[in-house]
Structures are given as C-alpha cells and as structure tokens.
C-alpha cells in the first residue's frame, strides 16, 4: 500500500506543485491519476519513485519511506513520460542493465518472450526505435522488472490501440499472477476508465476526488428534465447537490453529486414532463469537478 500524507512540493519556493496532498493507493488495484495540466501528477509520481524529495509530509510504500531507500525502491519501477535509454544501447543491453539493478525480480526470459511478441528487435539500437517502440520497450522493461509497483507517467500515450490493449492485458495478467499494482497517469480518461479501479483527481497540487471508479460513476449523475412550472423547478433544485447546471429552453441538465437512487427518491414527488438519469463518463466527471473549482472551458475561452 502506498500512503501519501500531507505531501507538499515546490520547485521555486513560491508556489507548490503538490500542495498538502493526502492519498492512499491500495495493492493489486489499478490507480489512475488524472488531473489538469500542471496539477502535479508527474511530480507526485516522481516523488513516489523516490526521484524527488518531499518538502513536507511523507510518502510511505509498504510503511517505509521511499526516498533514497533501496529496500523499498526495489519494489518500484518508474516509467517516465520520456524514458532514458543509454545512447548506444540495444533493448537487450537495457534488459541486462535492469537485470543488474533488479537482480531478484527481473526476468530476462520474459523480456525475450515479450520482445518477440511485440515484434521488437532486442539487438537493434534503441536510438533507431520509433517513439511508440520506445514506449513499448519501456513497458516491457517495467513489466519484466517484476516489481510490485509500476509507476507509469503518460505511458499509454503514443501507443497504437493494439499495443495499448496488449499493455493493458499485460498489466491485468501481472495483477492476477503476482499482485502488480500499476499507478497510471494519463490525459486520456477513456483509457483509464477501461482499466482503473481507483481514480485520484488532482487539481493545482491538491486532490479533488479520490474514489473507487465505480463509486465515483455511481455517485455523480447527470439529470435531464423538463419541469411543469418554475415553482417546481426551484423547489426541486433545493437539496440537490448540483455540480453543474445548464438549460436549453425548458430542458434542464444537472450534474449532481448523488447516486441514481437518491436522485430518483428526490424526484419521486416532482411532476415532470421529462425526467431521465444518465451515467457520467470519467471525462464528464473530470470536467464537472474541475469546473466547480474554476477550471471552466467557458472561462478559458471567454475569459
């Protein structure tokens, strides 16, 4: 389990990239970190990988601090957005290197197997690989390292759909086989929606939401309705935890922080011409939650 407690991190001493963040990531779950640009996702991941030191607070992996602690870091593999490979190295060279760095867990056999399946030449210089191939290689290296935690920063971006699916399958298998805990960041929320068990929504260094994905989907719903009169509408809106409200003529759309059951209960005695409760996608949840805190498309466009 990864425990992040009141973590703060500043690069310039004036503003915080991660600000008083507290979060828990359970084992054997896929944790998705989503957030606005500059929300602190990569910073958080780098701190979790032990690259960056926290200014305040602590990050505990399996109850031990991660920074400069090889005993913990041997269970963590970090795949950054743009992974570094030795300048003249081949895939095989990098595998040999990681086999030395993770001597207890790295599997060269699996590496060879996966390289073949992904149609990557292990004796070809990495410098000659395409961007997508490098991403594939980094995922293969991460998987083969055999670590308990795999930190992936925008890792699926740049992969073609087939490879994305293949990578997700690999994660799923390793979760089942050896209890891998992948922690992913991505801007492609549809991608995360497919794979994540738990999602943390970051904004301006803090957490907006940190929930199980299913709970999140169920707890935020979209309502489309047409009221008979204005009095009914006003009365109904009271007590409805509205995140976003919009209307086109008499058709009102609400995004509310309630479960389908609660909403239906709330509307039970309201006479409406049209009433429909729709589930939200992760992307819609993201937009609605961030809009509440001022990250509004309209504001961005219209100022």
């Amino acid at each position: 389990m990864i425990n992040i407690r009141n973590v703060r991190k500043s690069y310039d001493g004036r503003s915080y990239a991660v600000d008083n963040l507290t979060m828990t990531m359970n084992e054997k779950e896929v944790f998705g970190l989503v957030g606005t640009n500059g929300a602190g996702k990569s910073t958080l991941l780098r701190m979790m990988a032990g690259v960056l030191r926290t200014d305040e607070g602590e990050i505990l992996i399996d109850s031990q601090p991660v920074y400069d602690n090889p005993a913990v870091k041997k269970d963590v593999f970090f795949i950054p957005d743009d992974m570094y490979f030795f300048p003249t190295a081949t895939g095989g060279d990098m595998a040999a290197y990681y086999a030395g760095v993770y001597p207890e867990s790295f599997s060269l056999d699996r590496f060879n197997f996966l390289m073949e399946n992904f149609h990557l030449d292990r004796s070809k210089k990495i410098a000659a690989y395409s961007k997508g191939m490098k991403k594939q290689l980094s995922i293969i290296l991460g998987i083969c390292s055999g670590t308990k935690y795999l930190l992936c920063d925008e890792t699926f971006d740049g992969l073609d759909p087939v490879m994305r699916q293949a990578a997700k399958s690999l994660f799923a298998r390793d979760m089942e086989d050896r209890g891998l805990t992948p922690i992913l960041t991505s801007h492609n929320l549809r991608e995360l929606e497919d794979i994540c068990d738990h999602v943390g929504l970051l904004h301006q260094g803090g957490v907006l939401l940190d929930r199980d994905l299913n709970d999140m989907k169920l707890s935020v719903c979209k309502i489309q309705c047409v009221f008979n009169n204005e009095e009914d509408r006003k009365a109904t809106e009271e007590g409805l935890d509205i995140l976003i409200k919009s209307n086109q003529g008499r058709v009102y759309n609400y995004t509310v922080n309630k479960s389908r059951e609660d909403i239906e209960e709330h509307f039970k005695n309201v006479d409406t011409l049209l009433f429909e409760v729709l589930p939200l996608t992760l992307e819609e949840i993201f937009i609605s939650e961030t809009e509440v805190v001022g990250y509004d498309i309209k504001k961005i466009i219209e100022g």
Partner: peptide, 15 residues
C-alpha cells in the same frame, strides 16, 4: 538532464 535523473534516481540504489 532530468530524463537521466529520473532514470538513475528511481533505481533502487542509494545515493
């Protein structure tokens, strides 16, 4: 180079 820093410092090797 921050890429190299991420690469090296994320590994389980003490500073």
């Amino acid at each position: 180079d921050s890429k190299k820093v991420d690469f090296y410092f994320s590994q389980p090797i003490k500073r």
